[in-house]
Design a protein around this nucleic acid. Structure first.
Length: 729
RNA sequence: GGACGCUUAGCUCAGUUGGUAGAGCAUCUCGUUUACACCGAGAGGGUCAGAGGUUCGAGUCCUCUAGCGUCCACCA
């Protein structure tokens, strides 16, 4: 017997060596599996694209949980004999990465990206991204992820850029991508607009001012935006104001002198709120913008892109809004326009969830994807929609989920998905940051050129904007498989089998992938969506730097091994439900790995000289034990097939420890004694070895390192790796 | 304001189609026998948040209530 087995299991000694063995074997690559004869060339394909981690830093426990779940599914299906592919990659995460680098740049050198200029700044970002990428790849390997590294992708590499430009061109030609002057979420700090989904609302106590506006009283938390307010709006059914008719002109004294206000009746006004009267600032408020659009009202800009008041503010022009507010309030007070101040008002402030800048809505020319625009779907492979049929993107997104062509686990998230889609507005895809895919649009002398490639003749200037990072992530399931080029991978592995990710990016990403895949391929991107919960600390709090409660996956791997780390993230992890994780839990799983190690020691000590070529006759009671083990195999297989990994591992844990070790092995001891009849002895030994072999196979997807290490110490095995052994069913 | 989720042993959670309440950790007692003290044998501990309903039977299905949490929404 190998001397290693005499000492406790040491993950550190085994893991890196084992991972290298797997990589060298080529078995992460399905083509190699076919070549080496471990997978049938006509086998059913099984594929997952790795949700690409952002190149903004390092992986956290949420990533680790995702990797554990996906690797289990991949390893299980590989052992089932399927042609199994798991594609690795990383995401350039435009805004997140750019703001991170800007932050570092400012901290270290007190410089902004504009001080460096576009090219020099981008070089910095790329260097940062490369470093992050390398760290991430290292971490992915440490977790034991059986990813096919020959197919690694990056959302911003050449192949993906071609996919992005092709998708843009197609959507533009179909009239789905258009340019429009709309109110957008402008982040003055980042100098870019962000989409509705990238906004985080924070509550803030602030003053709420009641101002005299002619015969009315209006309320506002933002007096600095009010200079241009010349429309006074009330609900058409509000009886308090029935003497005012839509279109009435009223002369009144305002901040910088007398103005003429126009009465507007609109149902968007809430009669219960304040006095039921409001004035509007269409350039800087989304609701006001919509009212102005409905009634064809003037829109005036009050604040510029850097938060500075424009000439309309009179003597306040040139001042930053933050500093001007108090002075403006003072002036209102002097003029007798300030009626009352509520000091306990709680306002909701829009911030950029990456970078934290306070959003200042602005009207700007941007690129949008129209989700309600009709177009003819080409080459439909979707059930219920014919090629050439007129549809909208929104309809496609709803259709594939309502008809169950895509299943979401847990299914209550389908409701959330539908609700979001139903409220979906046109998707603003242009950003004014520098890191990302440049928009494939060129201008010259008032002419516009939209294509995959730049025009040949000189003098054309490319649109300086970049695309929302989710545009390229939306293509991920097929851009990683070679689209738009003809590629056998695309035929074999798309649609992918399952998309596994955290429920927090259901809208950002999953919905966008469904949009992009149904549009560009006329097909679903994946058959099943499996959503895992957030990983929280032992007390259920979010892990964050400020709380200091972050558990780093690499630390856990270092202390307790990758297998223990994986198990702790799978046990008790039900889909869609947040998982509480403490270090104790990881430690407990390490004990399990060691238990398995010791079980092996016992079985091998007793079976080393057993000749499995001439299988001994099994006695009835041993036959019974093997049958019971088979039943467990069926149950566990069923659990994995139905994505109940938490149940599968619990049963396996229980069977291995409390049935196999505590009962079967304990009861076998008398039968292994010298004086026991040879027949009985052989039968017992054969039974033990058979069950151990099965248990190792079943456990392999969950704890690949220790099982592979043990496999290599088994004297009876064929000369193969456990990773490609057949699943015992 | 709307939607969703959670509430089961001291702690963390399972409980898959309704059929006599489960696991791990923690606690207590005992124990070194062909692996394992990162161990074994055993014990205590729950009116399954509350109220009502359907049913022969409900932790599980329905209704309502409470607490906690998450997401969505244009209340100036």
């Amino acid at each position: 017997m190998d001397e290693k087995l005499l000492k406790p299991y040491n993950p550190k000694e085994a893991e890196d060596k084992i991972y290298k063995l797997w990589e060298e074997s080529g078995f992460f690559n399905p083509d190699a599996c076919v070549e080496k004869g471990v997978t049938d060339k006509n086998a059913e394909p099984y594929s997952i694209v790795l949700p690409p981690p952002n190149v903004t830093g390092t992986l956290h426990m949420g990533h680790a949980a995702m990797l554990a779940i996906e690797d289990i599914l991949i390893r299980y299906n590989r052992m089932k004999g399927k042609k199994t592919l798991w594609i690795p990659g990383t995401d350039h995460a435009a805004i997140a990465t750019e703001s991170k680098v800007e932050e570092i740049l400012y901290k270290k050198e007190k410089k902004t990206r504009h001080d460096l200029g576009r090219d020099a700044f981008l070089k910095r970002v790329e260097a940062f991204a490369q470093e992050s990428h390398d760290t991430i790849v290292h971490q992915l390997k440490k977790m034991g992820s059986s990813l096919d590294w020959t197919r690694e992708a990056f959302t911003l590499d050449e192949k993906r850029a071609l996919a992005v430009r092709t998708a843009f061109k197609n959507m533009y030609d179909d009239g789905l991508i258009y340019q429009g002057e709309r109110i957008v979420n402008w982040d003055p700090k980042m100098q870019s607009n962000v989409s509705d989904d990238e906004i985080e609302w924070v509550e803030q106590k602030t003053n709420f001012y009641y101002l005299k506006y002619g015969p009315f009283t209006i309320g506002t938390a933002r007096p600095e935006t009010k200079f241009g307010d010349k429309y006074v709006v009330m609900h058409p059914k509000d009886s308090r104001y029935k003497q005012y008719k839509h279109g009435d002109k009223i002369k009144l004294e305002w901040i910088n002198g007398p103005i003429t206000a126009t009465v507007v009746k609109d149902e968007a006004v809430n009669m219960e709120f304040g006095t039921g009267v409001m004035t509007i600032t269409p350039w800087h408020d989304a609701t006001d913008f919509e009212i102005a659009e409905r009634h064809n009202l003037d829109k005036e800009q009050i604040i510029n892109e850097r938060g500075i008041l424009l000439p309309i503010a009179g003597k306040f022009a040139g001042e930053h809004i933050k500093k001007a507010r108090e002075k403006i309030v003072e002036k209102l007070k002097q003029k007798g326009l300030l009626e009352k101040v509520d000091e306990n008002y709680v306002n909701r402030i829009a911030t950029n969830y990456r970078g934290g800048g306070v959003i200042e809505p602005q009207i700007r020319k941007q690129w949008f994807i129209g989700v309600n625009k009709k177009f003819k779907l080409r080459n439909s492979k979707l059930k219920g929609i014919k090629s050439g049929q007129e549809v909208t993107l929104k309809e496609l997104m709803l259709h594939v989920v309502t008809t169950k062509q895509i299943n979401i686990i847990p299914d209550n998230f389908e409701k959330t998905y539908f609700h979001w889609i139903n409220n979906l507005r046109d998707w603003c895809i242009s950003r004014q940051i520098w890191y990302g895919h440049k928009i494939p649009v060129w201008y010259k002398d008032g002419k516009i050129h939209v294509d995959v490639d730049a025009p040949k003749e000189p003098g054309w200037n490319q649109d300086p904007d970049t695309l929302d990072t989710w545009f390229s992530s939306g293509l991920w399931t097929f851009s990683t498989l070679g689209w738009p080029k003809e590629n056998p991978d695309l035929k074999t592995y798309h649609p992918t089998s399952v998309l596994e990710t955290g429920y927090d990016i259901l809208f950002f990403w999953i919905a966008r992938m469904i949009l992009m895949s149904t549009y560009n391929l006329g097909d679903i991107p994946f058959k099943t969506v499996y959503l895992h919960g957030l990983v929280r600390d032992g007390q259920g709090r979010k892990m964050s730097k400020s709380l200091g409660n972050i558990i780093n996956p690499l630390d856990m791997i270092e202390k307790y091994g990758a297998d223990a780390t994986r198990l702790s993230l799978i046990m008790g992890n039900t889909p869609g439900q947040d998982l509480k994780l403490s270090e104790d839990k990881v430690r407990g799983q390490k004990h399990f790995a060691n238990k398995l190690w010791n079980v092996t020691r016992f079985v091998l000590e007793n079976t080393e000289d057993l000749n499995m070529e001439n299988k001994p006759q099994l006695m009835e009671e041993d036959e019974e034990k093997i049958k019971e083990c088979k039943r467990i195999v069926y149950e566990i297989t069923e659990d994995i097939e139905r994505y109940r990994l938490y149940l599968a591992i619990e049963k396996l844990y229980h069977y291995t420890w409390h049935t196999f070790a505590d009962i079967i092995i304990e009861e076998s001891k008398p039968h292994l004694k010298e004086e026991s009849p040879q027949e009985k002895k052989d039968s017992t030994r054969c039974m033990l070895l058979s069950i151990l072999t099965t248990v190792l196979k079943l456990l392999h997807p969950f704890m690949p390192f220790v099982t592979e290490e043990i496999w290599s110490l088994m004297p009876h095995k064929k000369k193969t790796l456990l990773i490609v052994e057949k699943w015992p069913i």
